[in-house]
Amino acid sequence: MTEEPIPVSHGVFKIQGNIYTLNLVPGKSVYGEELFLYKDVEYRRWDPRRSKLGAFLIKEKDLPFRYDSVVLYLGAGDGTTVSHLSDILTHGKVFAVEVAKKPYRNLLELSKKRKNIFPVLADARNPENYKDIIGKVDVIYQDIAQRDQVEIFLKNLFLLEEERFALIAVKARSMDVSSPPKEMYRKVEKRLEERHEVISCVDISPWQKDHAIVVIKR
């Protein structure tokens, strides 16, 4: 297999079967991922086992992010996936909303090195607390493993420009432990379909068990 990076989506490349993003801060690995140098350009391995969005990309072969997108990321965690978005959004930015203090500290550190990450310590249940800094965004991505994850998602959709995409990672097990995941995904799709157009629902196993990502258009 050739070593040459093949572009897959904005800022994302496939090298020898794995996906990589162009490292915005060369020489630095964020969470222990492999760095790969090709013709003086450094790439960072995007691990689909660590990042649901990475798994989604492998399955779907495309992402709705452009290099200049403004992204609202709900449930940013300690920034594994955010760091790859930061690589992609060279002329855009990502508002990373996280409510827990421990991961937020990591986000703070990460954003000191990466100027396109805007860390927001807030509960995504109250978009009122951050709407004034965000304005409107091009993409919303949510990864919050809570029972009311769909309500949270719907509450935030007013921050999305019209005709743009929003993605939600659905963790079947955190909504209802007893019913089968497929049924859960269907339920989520139905709820979203009431007011929005559902574009796709992608099961991201085997990289992430009992997870799917649903894409909607506002």
């Binding site: 930015k93 203090k101 937020y104 500290r105 986000l107 703070l108 954003s111 000191k112 100027k115 990450i117 805007f118 860390p119 927001v120 310590l121 800094i133 304005g135 409107k136």
Partner: peptide, 27 residues
């Protein structure tokens, strides 16, 4: 209002710096 307020907005690096300060303070 995003478009009409744009001309008054400060630059992004100031926003980022303020968010860092705010987050640290809240923690």
């Amino acid at each position: 209002y995003a478009s009409i307020l744009k001309e008054y907005s400060f630059n992004d690096s100031l926003l980022q710096e303020a968010l860092l300060k705010l987050g640290s303070k809240k923690i």
